[in-house]
Amino acid sequence: MSEHKENTPKAWSGGDKPFNASYGKLMMWFFLITDALTFSGFLAAYGWSRFKYPEIWPNPEDVFSHFPFLEGDHPLLFVALMTFILIMSSVTMVLAVNYGHKMQKNKVILWLSLTIVGGSIFLLSQAWEWGHFIHGDKGGIDTKTESVVHLAKDNELSSIYDMMGVDSYDGNEYEFTVNQIITSLEENPEYHIRKANREFLTNEQSINYLNENATEVILGANLTRNEYGHRLFADYFYFITGFHGFHVFSGVILLIIILINVIKGTYERRGHYEMVEKVGLYWHFVDLVWVFVFTFFYLV
C-alpha cells in the first residue's frame, strides 16, 4: 500500500506487485474466495435440507408475499425491489471507483455517498422483511407429524386471522388454542385445512384431522418453531439472510470510513484511490452473494 517507499522494493511490500495487483487487493480477493466458500456452504446445506423434505418445505411465494403500503399478496415484488436497490448501489460503487482512477475527488464523494444511501435502504428493507417474517401473517397449526398445516378457504391458502375475524396488524398480540380453531371451523364451513404437502382436506376431514393430530397454534416465527412449515426453513432464513445482512452492514461502515478519508483528502495525498477500489470489491461481492440468495431462497 505504501507506494512512496520505493527505496525498498521487496515483494509483498507493495513495491513489487505479483499478478500486477497490489498486496491489499490480492488479500481482499483471497478473503472474498473464502467468504464465497462459506456462503456456498450455507446455501448447499439449505439445498440439502430442502431435498430431504421436498413435500413439506414451505413455498417461498406463500411466505414472502408482502409489499409496503399495498394490500393483498404480491409474491417476489419486494425482494425484486431489494435486488434492484443492491444492483443500483453496485453501479454507483463502480462509478466511484472509476472516478477514483481519474482522481476526481468530488465525483468520488458523490457516488460513494449514493452507495451508502443504497446500502442503508437495503438494510432497512431487510429489517422490514424480518419484522414481517417474525410477526407472520397467516398462522399455522403444528401437528404430531412435525409438519405445520395451514388454513384454506375454498381451496386457496387463507389465514387464521381471517377465519377468527381479526386483523393481525391491529396492534394486539393474538393467541389461539387448537380448540378455538376447531370450534371456528365448525362454525365456518367454507374454511378447511391445507396440509404441508399442499393437499386440501374438506371441512369435516379438517376437524377430524385437527382433533387427532393438532398440538398447538403457531403465530409468527422464531428459531424453534415457525408458522410457515419446517423449523429449518426459518433457521436458514435467519442465518443466511442475517449473515448476508451483516456483510451489508459491515460494507456500509467501511464505505463511511473511506468516505471520510476521501473528504479529508487522504487518498488525494497518497496519489491513488486504491482503497476505494478494495472496498468496492467487497461491496460487489455482497451484491454477488445476494444474487445467489435471491435465486435459491426466493425463486427456486
Binding site: 453496485s90 460487489h284 451484491d287 454477488l288 444474487v291 445467489f292
Partner: peptide, 9 residues
C-alpha cells in the same frame, strides 16, 4: 454472477 465478477470487480 459472471457479469458482476468480470465487469464490476
Amino acid at each position: 454472477a459472471a457479469y458482476i465478477v468480470m465487469e464490476f470487480m
